[in-house]
Design a protein around this nucleic acid. Sequence first.
DNA 1: TATATTTACTACGACAGACATAGTACGACA
DNA 2: TGTCGTACTATGTCTGTCGTAGTAAATATA
Lengths: 111, 111
Amino acid sequence: MTSISSDVIRGYNDTMILYLLLDGPSYGYEISKKIREISEEKYVIKETTLYSAFTRMEKNGYIQSFYQTAENGKRRTYYQITQEGITYYQQKYNEWDLTQEVVQHFMKKIL
Amino acid sequence: MTSISSDVIRGYNDTMILYLLLDGPSYGYEISKKIREISEEKYVIKETTLYSAFTRMEKNGYIQSFYQTAENGKRRTYYQITQEGITYYQQKYNEWDLTQEVVQHFMKKIL
DNA sequence: TATATTTACTACGACAGACATAGTACGACA
DNA sequence: TGTCGTACTATGTCTGTCGTAGTAAATATA
């Protein structure tokens, strides 16, 4: 079974995270599991990639963090998407359409 | 008019170059122009990105270079795709299908 | 004929994102 | 008591892209 290399999907890590945050605040471990599930195990984001994306995106104003202690007593860092983050997500959504269109022109099945 | 950022397309530079070389040997300036034309000006590869891709891919055995002096007297470095390069291209072709499928799950139009 | 533009590169250093590795700490479960 | 799962943080390396700069020959324009 083919899986996806980080080289081809690296441009979409932030977008995937923001997509999940559109449904409400979440935290690292949950985001990670959801990406794995939604992609049907075809893409597993690395922990360090994920957490450094959080840091970067918070610095850029796309997400905001807050601490919360879960029912089980575990202290977590939650992130919520900001208005700027939503706008950024929309841009990436449009860019995805364009990218598909362009890249498609360079794809040819070899017989 | 929206154009494509290198962040989202960077995983496809090598693939685009190899695609063009499937039709026969070519050189930097020509590859560059073709990418711009085929993408309808939506993506313009940077010179340094292109030439360093050549170097890297030759090192990896995906392409081979040779020198040739053109009709106009200009000495050029041509590149041709190798069998390994074709195999690599095929892999990337398959990965593209998979990537589209996966990324699509994280794309939602916001109203 | 002089100058600008296009063609066809090479060199070098900076930077950002992904990654490997390692470590901390707490809760659940056997 | 020990292992597994959860939930991170720290640090340094690597790779691909990019900015900047420079060379040089051919072609177009004034």
